[in-house]
Structures are given as C-alpha cells and as structure tokens.
Design a protein around this nucleic acid. Sequence first.
DNA 1: TTCGTAAATGTAAACGTTTACGAAACCTGT
DNA 2: ACAGGTTTCGTAAACGTTTACATTTACGAA
Lengths: 341, 341
Amino acid sequence: MTGIRALADSLNISIGTVSRALNGKPGVNPETRDRVLKMAQETGYVANAAGRNLRKGLTNTIGMVIGTGPAAAKGDNNFFMAVTDAMQRAMLERGVDLILLPCHAAMDPLAFLQRTLQRGSIDGLVLTATLEQDPRIAMLEASHLPFITLGRSRTPGNYAWMDLDFEGAARQSVARLAELGHRRIAIGIPKGQANLSALYLESWRQQMQAEGLSPSDDLLFVDDFTEAGGAQVAARLLDQADRPTAILMCSEPMISGFCGGLLGAGVQPGADVSVIGFRQSPLLRHLAPPISCFDMDLDALGEDMAKAILGLVYDADNALHITRAISPMTYVETASVQPLR
Amino acid sequence: MTGIRALADSLNISIGTVSRALNGKPGVNPETRDRVLKMAQETGYVANAAGRNLRKGLTNTIGMVIGTGPAAAKGDNNFFMAVTDAMQRAMLERGVDLILLPCHAAMDPLAFLQRTLQRGSIDGLVLTATLEQDPRIAMLEASHLPFITLGRSRTPGNYAWMDLDFEGAARQSVARLAELGHRRIAIGIPKGQANLSALYLESWRQQMQAEGLSPSDDLLFVDDFTEAGGAQVAARLLDQADRPTAILMCSEPMISGFCGGLLGAGVQPGADVSVIGFRQSPLLRHLAPPISCFDMDLDALGEDMAKAILGLVYDADNALHITRAISPMTYVETASVQPLR
DNA sequence: TTCGTAAATGTAAACGTTTACGAAACCTGT
DNA sequence: ACAGGTTTCGTAAACGTTTACATTTACGAA
C-alpha cells in the first residue's frame, strides 16, 4: 500500500478525509485534521504529482524558459538568476514551484515549446528573451496556457508582459552624451531579432533626432552577441575617418570586447570614446574604466512577474487583468562617460 | 472525448492498439501503425504527461537542483549555465528533458529536496554545490531516486559523483608560486561548509608542507562569498606585518573584491601580491590585471554528467556502474602571478 | 474442412489523487 | 422522542495512459 492510502490506513480513516484534511478543504474535524497533518509531517508524505495532476489538471508549477547555448553561456545569466530568485521566493509563499526550462540554442525553440506545452506539466509559463516577431507567442496564445513574457514583442496579441525600459535607457544615454557635447553618438547592438535591440535602436534614432543629431547608418554597428563581436565593432568604429566619440551598447559581452578592442588600439574607453552600457553587472563594474550603465530593481521585477503569472493562473478574478509594466532604470555614471574634448 | 480515446475513435480502433502503435511496441499491423502515426501527427496529439507518468512511474525528465539567493546571484552562474547546456544537449538525444530546480537560500535545502522527491516528477536528480557533510545525500540515498552529485562530499555512501580537480588546482598553484620564490602563500576561501573549500584548503596545506613552507593560520583567510568578503580579506592581509606575497582564491566574487581592496590601498595585484584563482571566467579575465586561473572543458563535463545520470536512470545494465570522475584543469598564467621581488 | 498457431486487436485494470455524493452521527428545538 | 439540520466521514468515480490478458482474425498444414 502506498501514497495517501497508506497514510489513511495508518490513521484508520478514509482517503477522502485525508485528502480533504491535507488540502485545507472544509468539513473535516479540526482534531482529525491535526492528526492527519502531523502524521503527514512525520512520514514526509507529499501528494504524488502525477496523480494530483491527472485528477486536477494542475501541477502547481510554473515554468520559465530560458535560452542556453554558447551565446547565453557567455552572456550575463546573473540577470536571470536574480529575477528567478525573486520569483521563486514570491511563488513559494503560494506553494507554487518554479522550474527552469533551458532551451538550447541548437534546438528549435518552437518545437521545444510545443513539447513542454503538450507534456502538460506546468500550469503557466514565463517566456524570456522575446523576439521582435516571436512565433512562440502565437503558439502560447493558441495553447490556452496562461503565460507572461519578460520582454515585449511586436507580435500582436492580448498577452501579459513585463519589460525593462530600453527606450528610456537609450533616450537618457543619448541626451546625456549630447549634453556633454558629443555629436557622433554611435550605437552597437547584437545581431538577431531580439526585441530589446529593436527598441534600443529605435529609441536611439528618435532621441538623436530630438537632439538635432543625425542617426546615420555609419553610427550603427551590428555584430555578434560576443566579445569577438564587440571587438569587431571597435575595429570598425576606429576605422572611420570621422570617428564616433561615444557609443551605446546593450550587450555585456560586446561591451567587454569593445573596450578590449579600443585598448588594443591604444584608445582609452571614456577618455577617447565614451561608453554607456545597459544593465549593471559585476563585469561592467570591473572593466577599466567601469562602464556607465543603468541600475534596476531586479528583485522587484521578479516579484512583480511572479504576482502577475500567479494571478493569471490561479486567481480566476485576476485572470482578466493583463499586466503590462515597464521596469524603470536609473542611470549611474562612471568615468566611461566624459565630455567631448 | 479526449486524449487517446478520441484518437482511437477517429480511427475506429481501440486505445490499446493506438498506444502500442505510438510507443513502437511490437504486435501491431504496420499499416495500422502508419494510420495512427499519421493521424496523431495531423491532430497534434501527444500523450498527456500526467497520465503516462502515473501509469509508468517515469516522467522522462531529470532535475538539477541549483542554489539561488543573494550569494548565488552574485557568483558565477555561467558555470552552471555552461554545464547545463551540455547536459541538455546530451539528454535531448535520448528524449529526456532537463529541468532546473532553483532552491532559494532562504529555504531549507532538505525540505526542498524532500518535496521534490515526493512529488515524483523527476526520474533522476543532479545535486550541485555539495557540502563537506551533506545531509541531502543521505536523503537521496534513502529515497532510491537515482542521482549524481556535481561535487564530492565527505558524507559516506555508494553514490555517483563528478567533480573538478580542486586539489590539483591548489597543488599546482602553490607549486608554481613556490617556484617563483614566494614563501608566504596565503589562501582565501568562502565561509560555509562547501566541500570544494575543504578540498582546496587541504590540498594547499599539503603542498605547502611539500614545498617546505608552513601553512600557518595567519595565511588562512575565511570570509563571505562576496566582493565585500574579498575586500575584507585584502584589508586583513595588508594589515599583517609579515605580509603574504601571494594568495589562492577559489571564489570569483571574492577575487574581484580582493583585487579591489588591494588597489584601494595602493597595492598592485600581481606586482605586489600574486593572485591565482580557480575557474576561468569573463570577470577574472577582465580584472586588471587578468587573474591567473584554470581552464576546463565544461562542455565535456556536462556531457559526461548527462551520460552518467541517464545510464543510472534508464539503463538497467548500467545502473550498477557508479561513475566517479574528476575533471582535469589546466593552468593559465597571467600577469597576476609574478616572481617574488 | 478443420485445427493449431501466430498475428492483430480489444478489454479492463491499474497508477494516486481529488471530489461529488451519500451515509452516518451528532446536535437542537419542539 | 422525533424531525430536521449540520458536521463529519466513507465510497466510488474520474482524470489519461500503459499493459497484461483475453479475444478475434488470418493463414497454412493436416
């Protein structure tokens, strides 16, 4: 005899009562409930996931798909870790588990998603690293599995999302550099269809024009999301006759490679070319000089994400409320940004 | 009607035949099998996870518990990401999913483990960040769930593990520094019961004695697994009259904080105090100067881990073969290590 | 034709849980 | 003492799948 049946037997009561006691359902004698809870505690009984899932159609777990692969491994996973951390903490209070679903770069993201959807082992999903056009979103909408994306997308649909203020960061960056006299303000973004790159780029364009500067094509550098890519950007930038005097970059590895490239050519980041990054990170803080970037409250972000997806999945009344929020960022300036000489 | 029943109905055959056809079991007419497969393809049918899991007692997923929380968020998660990545790739070939189980620092690791064990949603487990004495291992052994640890432990038992060569790293580090004339070679390790710290420390002791040097207590620095902790170590080290001229450190954030502490006091890492770290990482590479450390093949490690746990879980004949392997590390020297002046 | 064997298919039980439903026990006021 | 209501509890069905077993069909050989 196993599971709830064994527990019920050892207490000489029926499995129905045990189940009700454990799940906090009404209509069970407080004294009986205590006995059940105590025995469950002692024996370490926890309801089998498959059985419960089969019966209820719910698993009490939320999945979060994260990209892995060469690029991701070199990127700043600390971002995900920090968010994950806060999310899990918030979910724990509700007795919900968070699992991470790593999707390898070499794998078709759609097939991966399809698989996890069909498996039916999660109640809701957090989708990260959204693309400008993201077919995964359409798939999720069709699947009727509640989900929220971390990152926006141009893909139409009535879904919940949260994001960081890439536009604000680009806007502030350009404005600050212009204020310091810079006129040829470049931007470096990673190759690929990431939505954040698109937002970052678009906002750079707008603010450049707002400052009366030209967002010309020779100020736009697109390269691999790696240190090598950043080094490439540096090489191409230094090659220009009318060399840009400042640059915005949203990718950590690229910034690192970029600064390396500058130094290799005898050009000082900051002194010769001002650099503004996006997200605060240990690496950026330890480059020489440290890179100006934006600080944010990842803890709050994670908590908000958790609340949003939990509401969507488990609170019938909240299910209609689609949260869409943009997390603010605060600029932190370092020696990597200096007035135009 | 839903699930396999609907599929069977639409083909006018029984669910038994459908199940056999889908699962490649023998004893089904090839023609019928084709019809089933085709219909399943068309309708997008995939067996419900809960039902299958309940019946078979297997979920085709392997879990990997990773620590989160403030400390982990600041540490180098790239390590886990890289290993995870390779593991997942290897598992995918076998149709097995890998899920990450983040265990928040504020949570009791034992309770967390107990929960995931009882839930029965994984077929096998990868345990990371093992402690010198790790009660989780005993719990896992009692649970009869196949598992492998990434990191050894003094906890006795007949379990599989893989690990990095912390002893070798410490030994090589001391030997190299001694060769360069250093005599007061310190070691900095994080507080806590992590097994790797113990190995690292013990091996340092042994090699110091082998070199005819004294591993005295004033050469041992224990502090928080954070930048602040590293800075503390720097302060205490610089405070000594007979100042150590070199140090080994296995924690990335501590190294970073340590170097910051040195620089803040006008002491040059490398030139004044040689520093050797443990694992290669972007941050260590970008400190000034870059930190000497050890390179390793995380991809191979991940693949081996995957093979080991898969064999343990799904291959009956392999189930008795307990893999125990130590991943080699190769020393990469930088300007952070210099001859004693 | 008839039987025996193998191939193909159908049937039903089982996995562990939750929950609708009914039964029992216990009150409470008349 | 009894009807009616409220607690409390037990029973059994259901979730969707796999698989042991029973059953049918097909096909040669006798």
